[in-house]
């Protein structure tokens, strides 16, 4: 477990994002300590990627963003691109699902890494090439000296993702955000990349944010998990707690809907209905129309993320959790 006294390296507070007045993110809070690994899980459109694209100023102009994103105490939101360019690829690096489209196809991969090293670490060409070779070696590209002069199409998908990771490491990031880093890869290659991520996170003491739709991957790599649904964090807990005792009905549903190799095959418990579209969100809790435990009040207001009684690090945004809290609140008053 991470040391509680460690300060947060990044703090996102009440982050709202809307596209053409359609809200996509309804106030996300997230804080990350140095060296911590946090998973963000949810289905397409839940806002797990938008959170970080907004935080790093990577969304298009028409996105309306409010809230606060503080990197070691300094505000990043609405900062000019010139300042963000020093942060992006430097203190915070990001890797994406499709490495082939993130790399420049007509530039040698070595030159692409050297560019990062010159930009973020001010290295001159010769030293940068030596450092690039070291990084290739670190991420497990065989024969690094020669492979620096190859083009992206000469590598396999798994190797391209290793190159992306090497480029991300080139800026010596304090935070690495990996957005579905293995979704496009085969399962045996996925295992290699997950091993690599875990190993470098430990070696470099970097904080890791793993964005994935796959609870299995999150469970293996992360200490803490945030579950998102329709633009809100609905549950947050240490990873073992989340799997052992999920509190939000959506998390419970996700876990039951997942086929497993460990247990005997049984009929899956599917969550009925579909994720609501952002333009047509129900009143109150967005999950209520699909929820087996809903009560009338669920359709009236959306519960805030609140701590489970006696479990400060486990939070859920559900009326059932909040009403358990109610007597304690009364006593406190």
């Amino acid at each position: 477990m991470t040391d509680a006294c460690k300060e947060p390296i990044i703090e996102i507070a009440d982050l709202h994002v809307a596209f053409d007045n359609v809200p996509a993110l309804h106030g996300v809070d997230l804080s990350l300590r140095r060296g911590e690994s946090v998973g963000m899980v949810g289905e397409s459109g839940c806002g797990k990627s938008v959170t970080w694209l907004a935080a790093l100023g990577l969304l298009p102009q028409r996105a309306q963003i409010s809230g606060s994103v503080r990197l070691a105490g300094e505000e990043l939101l609405h900062e000019p691109a010139s300042r963000l360019d020093k942060v992006r690829g430097g203190r915070i690096a990001m890797i994406f699902q499709d490495p082939a489209s993130a790399l420049n196809p007509v530039q040698k991969v070595g030159d692409q890494i050297i560019e990062v090293l010159r930009l973020h670490r001010g290295m001159e060409r010769h030293a940068a090439r030596a450092e690039a070779r070291r990084l290739f070696d670190q991420v497990g590209i065989p024969d690094p000296a020669r492979r620096l002069d190859a083009y992206p199409h000469e590598f396999s998908g798994g190797q391209n993702q290793r190159i992306m990771i090497a480029m991300a490491l080139a800026g010596r990031p304090e935070i690495l955000i990996a957005d579905e880093p293995t979704t496009a890869l085969d399962v045996t290659i996925q295992a290699q990349i997950l091993d690599l991520l875990q190993q470098i996170q430990r070696e470099m003491g970097m904080a890791l944010v793993l964005i994935s739709h796959d609870l299995g991957i999150i469970g293996e790599l992360c200490e803490r998990v945030l579950v998102l649904y329709a633009g809100r964090v609905v549950e947050e807990a240490p990873v073992d707690r989340l799997f052992a005792q999920p509190h939000h009905p959506y998390t419970q549903g996700l876990l039951k809907a997942l086929p497993s190799l460990e247990t005997k095959p049984h009929r899956l418990v599917a969550i009925p209905g579909v994720v609501p579209s952002a333009t047509d969100l129900p009143m109150g809790c967005a999950f209520a129309p699909r929820c087996a435990q809903r009560v009338e009040r669920c359709g009236e207001w959306a519960s805030e993320l609140a701590s489970i009684p006696n479990e400060g690090r486990h939070k859920a945004a559900c009326l059932h959790v909040a009403s358990e809290l109610a007597p304690a609140e009364v006593v406190a008053a």
């Binding site: 399962v187 045996t188 996925q190 295992a191 997950l194 796959d214 609870l215 299995g216 991957i217 999150i218 469970g219 293996e220 073992d240 799997f243 052992a244 876990l255 997942l258 497993s260 190799l261 460990e262």
Partner: peptide, 9 residues
Amino acid sequence: SAVPTPGAG
């Protein structure tokens, strides 16, 4: 063995 399993630690 490469299949990730939630809750398996």
